[in-house]
Amino acid sequence: MGAARGAGRARDSQVTSMQSSVNWALLGLVIERPSYAYELAQRFDRAYEGALSLSSTSHVYTALGTLTSRGLVEEVAGSRTGRQPKPRYRATAKGLEDYREWLVGQLAEDRRRQRLFVLQLAALTRDPEAALATLDRYEKACLQEAGETPLNGANDVQADEVSGLAARLLCEESRLAIGAKLEWTQYARAQLKSLASARAQGR
């Protein structure tokens, strides 16, 4: 039991030790479909446009080296043929498992980011009016993003089934996440207003 827990911790630390979002994104693409390096660079640009970027095409070779050394991807046997060999990579079972674990771990990452934001906003509560003004600007940014979120079916020209599904899931996730932020601003405003009122009465 203790050994199993220890092994789990060891694996957890290995999973978290790979910090590069680009590496995880490339692993995701390899899981979706085995590819060779140049093809992966092209797929990366299409799939993650606006969210992540490669410093150069050679970034993919470095990342594949890291993923291979960690046992997350492997060359497809027999793919290194021809005069200009282009080895194709596929995910290992460990790669798939670690990727799933990392994905779930992103929830904690989201919470960490939101916690940081709230703590940083709390730093402004010495002056509740200033905090309320900041909250108004935050709410306005949320509203703008909520409106800009595309509707499913509005731009249904997707390269394939997977990217279509990814677009729909992303769309819904963005809408729900922004909705939660909007509801939170209502609560935060009420709290800040009562703080401002209590301070005004105390004066």
Partner: peptide, 10 residues
């Protein structure tokens, strides 16, 4: 709030 999507002004 999901009903705000696609609006010119939310």
């Amino acid at each position: 709030s999901t009903g705000l999507a696609g609006a010119d002004r939310a």
